[in-house]
Write a protein that binds this DNA or RNA. Structure first.
Length: 479
DNA sequence: CATAGCCTACCACCAAACCT
DNA sequence: AGGTTTGGTGGTAGGCTATG
């Protein structure tokens, strides 16, 4: 836990001045401290070597660097809304006329929504970009974004190459061959399970490589295989004990029979749970076996690890979380947030004046993915123009990552500000309205929010964060 | 701020087993 | 028959990191 919190703190620093190596160092040294065998101390050595060889960039105070800085500063001033008669724009042709990009029709030379978080220090004005249309020969007056991207090939989305079916077939054939070899080697049909099935664009082969590492003697290789086969058999034996477990959290006098089978408060035996958790950790950290392969050997599923059981005393999952600052309780106290500066707009100040709202956002974000997305959508709703809470502040409040915030932001832009998250794809689409894109299938008039959730109406009726001064409005959202 | 890649966590559905 | 609970399956979202 400690190493993770250090890592998350590091991550915040990295975006300001650190190098990517910072995070690697923390991660590797953390791994080193967890390793249970001396064999894996090598990673720590590498980390040390990297730390020693790291060269810190000197601050350049040369004239050129100064010019670059000034140029950057002047660039930040490019948040002018439009070219007006008062403009000092060198493009005199525009005097007296509002700017309009010939491509995107934007009234802004520089999109004010992308001005960044730095403080404006210069008074210079942005100029439109001039590009000649190769088809018509006409000179186009373009905004900054269109000017920069003009003529460049548009990167097609979804062009990530899927693994060739032939590669996949070949991998499966190789896997079968390896399994057969293991069966022959150990003289046991169960040995066919000693190969990694994982294939994500390329085969994982973690188990295969572990079992036939170059340099191993003829005795060592079967030794490893025998060990894993023993784990497989023991896991299967303990898994069969599911009916012998005790019901831990049943109220006395419950009519339900205890230990009668799956369901009814009975679950896999404690011995199996402990066996899986212990050996999973060792296989993952030691020989670096991937999760899929470990699941195959120990015979458990994703649900076994992550599902919250109703019969569990604390209603908790079987493994401790390793990801998610919010879920792991690593978020900074609300009161502390207002003392930190997140961006030039200082969004975090509202943690002082609107602490209840921030607290509720944080609580709601921790309830689940869907509710977290609703909170993000609320926090991403612009006010006073196109500005909304900055990603850093949103991350501090909700614990959500940059990626998640970005995806919600995209969905909001795509749907014109719809805050309701798209329905889970595994959910039956019985209520889906035919002929509409998935994002718009939900009727905003009747959002399928469960009781206790804030509806999009109440959300949209509530003022944006900069304006919502009445705390009673906040509580009414939750009612 | 946006995006890609990799891995982990979440989520919905279904089957099984047993009870009411 | 319908309800309750666990566990398996597998699609998808999220977190982290690097890079643009």
């Amino acid at each position: 836990m400690f190493s993770v919190s250090r890592q998350s703190e590091k991550c915040l620093n990295i975006s300001v001045c650190g190098t990517p190596m910072d995070s690697q160092e923390v991660e590797m040294t953390g791994q080193d401290s967890n390793s249970f065998a001396g064999v894996f101390q090598e990673s720590g050595i590498i980390a040390k070597r990297r730390r020693n060889s790291r060269v810190r960039n000197k601050q350049d105070h040369s004239l050129e660097a100064d010019l670059v800085t000034r140029r950057k500063q002047s660039h930040l001033d490019c948040t002018v809304r439009r070219v007006t008669t008062n403009s000092k724009d060198p493009a005199d042709t525009l005097k007296g006329a509002a700017f309009c990009c010939d491509l995107c029709k934007s009234p802004y030379i520089v999109n004010p929504g992308r001005r960044g978080n730095c403080v404006k220090t210069s008074s210079s004005q942005p100029s439109p970009r001039h590009r000649r249309d190769p088809k018509t020969g006409q000179v186009l007056l373009l905004c900054n974004a269109c000017g920069l991207s003009f003529g460049k090939p548009v990167k097609a989305k979804g062009t990530v190459k899927e693994a060739m079916p032939n590669d996949r077939k070949e991998h499966e054939a190789q896997m079968q061959n390896f399994a057969l070899a293991m069966v022959e080697l150990l003289g046991d049909q169960d040995a066919a399970n000693l190969c990694c099935p994982s294939y994500n664009k390329k085969p994982c082969l973690c188990l295969q490589n572990y079992l036939k590492t170059p340099g191993l003697t003829n005795e060592e290789c079967p030794g490893r295989a025998v060990e894993l086969l023993h784990l497989f058999k023991e896991a299967r034996r303990l898994k069969g004990q599911k009916f012998s477990c005790e019901v831990e959290d049943q109220p006395s006098g419950s009519a339900k029979r205890k230990g009668s089978g799956l369901g009814n408060g009975c679950r896999r035996s404690k011995a199996y749970e402990e066996f899986v958790l212990k050996n999973r950790k060792e296989l993952r950290q030691g020989p670096q076996i991937c999760e899929k392969a470990v699941q195959r050997i120990l015979g458990y599923s994703n649900n076994f690890l992550h599902k919250k059981l109703k019969t569990s005393p604390q209603k908790r999952e079987r493994v401790e979380r390793t990801k998610g600052r919010g879920a792991m309780g690593l978020l900074k106290p609300i009161a502390e947030l207002s003392t930190l500066k997140c961006c030039m707009d200082h969004c975090s100040v509202m943690a002082h004046s609107y602490s209840r709202l921030i607290q509720q956002w944080r609580e709601r974000a921790s309830r689940g993915q869907a509710e977290a997305r609703r909170v993000l959508a609320e926090m991403l709703t612009p006010s006073g123009g196109s500005r909304c809470n900055c990603y850093r502040f949103i991350s501090w409040v909700t614990g959500c990552s940059h990626t998640t915030i970005s995806k919600v932001s995209q969905q909001m832009k795509r749907t014109g500000g719809l805050r309701e998250p798209p329905p889970h794809k595994l959910k039956r689409q019985t209520k889906a309205i035919q002929g509409q894109p998935a994002d718009l299938q939900l009727d905003p008039a009747e959002p399928p929010t469960p009781p206790g959730h804030a509806s999009p109406q109440s959300d949209s009726a509530a003022p944006p964060h900069h304006l919502s001064s009445d705390p009673s409005l906040i509580t009414s959202q939750q009612a």
